[in-house]
Design a protein around this nucleic acid. Structure first.
Lengths: 194, 194
DNA sequence: TAACCCATGTAAACGGTTACATGATTTC
DNA sequence: GAAATCATGTAACCGTTTACATGGGTTA
């Protein structure tokens, strides 16, 4: 089983969906922590169905193309449940920006500073988008976001990760940009550092 | 050009290295933000050499196998320099733990809490390793880690990213575990939340 | 003597992205 | 009239991981 398979099972555990709808959800919902395209989803659904983890029925529509609506099976739910707490093999987090910072010393420092300042702004923007979404969740979903047995808690937890991630990213970009601006000579460094 | 290509150029901009040595460095140094294996490095070095970005000379050794030591060319340094501040196309950060949290509601809450508590401990451990390395860098490299034109600044910046990343990760894991422990019923939630 | 380090390569498999393919309806 | 949305699929390509392949020297 691939991780994408579990991502799909997770969405189907919430509600039955078509391949198209699953693809749409994996573009914004779990958001920047997993994504895919329809060309990966359709074959994966076939594999899940062959394994007995999902099942589909055809829903005929008059105004739109017919669709296959997939549901999770009891077996699928069991597999998902077991996966959640199963041992993790460590995967490398690839981050191109870290590589760029790693080699910023070969570039023009002020040009590099502008680059990281721009990245800071970009992540700040994403952070505030997330903060807005968080307020929306609190308002709209209330106490359910704290209930460990509610799927809304899952959504909230993913968003919280996004917020914490972006906060850290903004902090780091700012520090890199500051360092590149002030650390061009050999003079005493200010304590931006924590 | 692939990102791995630039990662290799970045290491060769610091010092000439063999394919084997490059592979070793990409297992610990830039650490958890990029990694590779020798089976990817050797072909990539050939490609870089065909493009005129690196060059090698054979160093004969008596006690060990002969090796090809690669150096970056002027053209390679130029390419690296330009890449550092070139526009980034956004890439999805894939994080399996976020997916697990997203689906934690289908699992047994207390079992899931144990799982995330264990992850918290794991990342705390990694964090303190990084903190120790940071103190080492400050002691050993001194003010050079703040000089924008020093390769040591690049190393320090990558480590700083690691520290900030792990801090956030610990915070999030703790929050998830706390929520899973206390949010099993419908009772009023404590303010772990920030 | 078994495991590990040095050293370099190729081949197969896998997961993910991009492109190809089709086609109706709805919105701007 | 053009673009976007709904809807499902296949094919090609690319980057990464795992396995295959070889072989001498050192350490436990």
């Amino acid at each position: 089983m691939t991780t994408l398979g579990y991502a799909l099972l997770g969405l189907l555990a919430r509600e039955p969906l078509s391949g198209y709808a699953l693809t749409s959800q994996l573009k914004g919902r779990i958001g920047p922590f997993w994504s895919t395209t329809h060309s990966q989803v359709y074959p994966e659904l076939s594999r899940l169905e062959n394994g007995g983890l999902v099942a589909h029925r055809v829903v005929e529509q008059s105004d739109r193309p017919d669709k296959k609506v997939y549901s999770i099976t009891a077996e699928g739910l069991k597999a998902l449940k077991e996966w959640v707490t199963s041992p993790v093999e460590p995967r490398t987090t690839r981050d191109e920006l870290v590589l760029r910072a790693h080699n910023a010393w070969v570039a023009d420092p002020l040009e590099a500073a502008i680059f990281f300042r721009e990245q800071e702004r970009l992540h700040e923007e994403r952070l505030s988008d997330y903060e807005i979404k968080r307020e929306w969740m609190k308002r709209e979903w209330g106490e359910d976001i704290r209930r460990a047995d509610s799927s809304l808690f899952g959504n909230y937890a993913a968003l919280r990760r996004g917020i914490i991630h972006e906060r850290g990213y903004v902090e780091w970009c700012r520090w890199v940009a500051d360092s590149l601006e002030h650390g061009t000579g050999g003079e005493a460094a200010s304590e931006v550092d924590r």
